[in-house]
């Protein structure tokens, strides 16, 4: 035992010198693609990416209060900019890793038509939307309804998910007949997988620019820097595109 302990310690030291771990906070809508990218990243670089999924607003509060995250993949571009301004993130590192697309989606194959006319016609009791105050996809959905002139009539039917993952859950369980979700959540082989949906045209809402940033706790960390450059690489871009995001 006396001899094996230093040996083990040396082994751990050797391992940790090569493979670093990065703590990543990931916006809920990017859950699917990030799981794929993290696996590729680990395979290609030997570093480990430990992922936490949630809403960007919650991550902001946690990061501002000392959460150990080293990289943030936000659902917007405002939060990373704010974190940089307040000194919680490293200046010069934010970049747009994906531009999100919004879908009006239902598990009912007949409910949502290809032009979103259902919003005017009605025939549903609940429409799920991510909290527009905190979630960019929720704000975008609200913008769409305002532009189409249906925001007031639909307002009493709105149910809010605290983030886009919960909003998707409301729709997928059928508790709400339809809802605004991220395209990445319902895409399968390049199209809306199940039920019915309307890929909302980009002119009805401001682009959902999703920025990544290195946080103060990830400054000069090898794995954090490696992950950021991996996100800009072709392999990651391909995954991001396959989940229905646009690239910068």
């Amino acid at each position: 035992m006396k001899r094996t302990l230093p040996l083990l310690l040396a082994l751990f030291a050797a391992l940790s010198a090569r493979a670093d771990e990065v703590q990543v906070a990931v916006a809920a809508n990017f859950t699917g693609p990030m799981q794929v990218i993290a696996a590729l990243f680990e395979r290609d670089t030997g570093h480990k990416a430990s992922l936490a999924f949630g809403s960007t607003g919650k991550f902001y509060a946690q990061i501002a209060n000392g959460a150990p995250f080293q990289v943030l993949l936000a659902a917007d571009d405002e939060t990373p900019a704010k974190l940089v301004k307040e000194g919680y993130a490293v200046a010069g590192t934010p970049f747009t890793y994906a531009i999100g697309k919004l879908v009006l989606w239902s598990t009912d194959p007949k409910l949502v038509d290809g032009k979103g006319e259902v919003l005017k016609k009605g025939g549903f009791k609940h429409l799920a939307l991510a909290n527009p105050k905190a979630a960019p996809y929720g704000a975008a959905g609200l913008q769409v309804m305002t532009k189409l002139g249906v925001a007031e009539s639909i307002k009493p039917l709105l149910v809010q998910g605290e983030n886009i993952a919960q909003t998707h859950q409301f729709v997928s369980t059928g508790a709400a007949e339809l809802g605004f979700v991220a395209y990445s959540q319902v895409i399968k082989n390049g199209q809306i997988g199940a039920g019915s949906g309307w890929l909302v045209p980009g002119n009805l809402y401001d682009p959902i620019r999703q920025d990544a940033v290195i946080l103060a706790k990830g400054k000069d960390k090898v794995a954090a820097v490696a992950l950021m450059s991996y996100l800009k690489g072709d392999k990651a871009k391909e995954v991001i595109k396959s989940f229905g995001y646009e690239l910068h």
Binding site: A61, A128, N131, Q160, A176
Partner: peptide
């Protein structure tokens, strides 16, 4: 409440959920 409420004013938006909302919205 968060899971089955849907955060609707006057129907399901109770204080604990509203606090969460305020924190999320900074």
């Amino acid at each position: 409440v968060l899971m089955i409420g849907g955060n609707i004013p006057d129907k399901t938006r109770v204080v604990s959920v509203l606090i969460y909302d305020h924190v999320e919205a900074l």
